[in-house]
Design a protein around this nucleic acid. Sequence first.
DNA 1: TAGGCCATCTGGTCCT
DNA 2: AGGACCAGATGGCCTA
Length: 195
Amino acid sequence: MDSVFSDTDTSCDLFPHTDDEDSVRGSSMRGASPPPDQPQQQQKKRRRGRGRSDASAQVVKKSRRLKANDRERNRMHNLNDALDALRGVLPAFPDETKLTKIETLRFAHNYIWALSETIRIADLQAGRGGEPPPLRPAPSPASDGSAGRCWSSGGSSSSSSPAYCASSPGSPAAPDDLLPRDALFGFRSFAMGIY
DNA sequence: TAGGCCATCTGGTCCT
DNA sequence: AGGACCAGATGGCCTA
């Protein structure tokens, strides 16, 4: 499939960033942590009396480390790409600033829950043929103010509720065509409403 | 300026 | 043995 989450695609050349030299002195370049426990002087001292094998071993070790760094960088880039793809699927307003990683994950979680809840309600309605149930999940029993604006199902149904209380939004994120635009307002804060 | 977010490096652990 | 995954550390950038 075209899944974004191509688990271990080592084939990703998303970033022509394979700068060996770059990663070699990545620490100094990005200001990343300089090896705190390995001052060069110590290394020099330790080298005393050792044969060439030690030096070559160091070279091998360093080369392995650099390769590992490169792989790790790629891995994180893949992860970020997947995260970006996820952002692309989630509803958002143009003026909304980019969701952070944690916001994206939390919002996706809640959004999926909202969708499944919508389906569940629709199924219920179809099976019964009665009057349409409210499209929006009922406000949580504990929510009578600004504080407890949870839109969890309260564990009332089969669907596992996210039980996450959003700090602000009064309504859950839901499919765009099912909910008015204002239902999506503030989903950013909603996204944050986990834990 | 403090705090949040992020990218990167790094060493350890697990898996193939 | 080598690669993937993970968590901690570190420093840069941005915003309130």
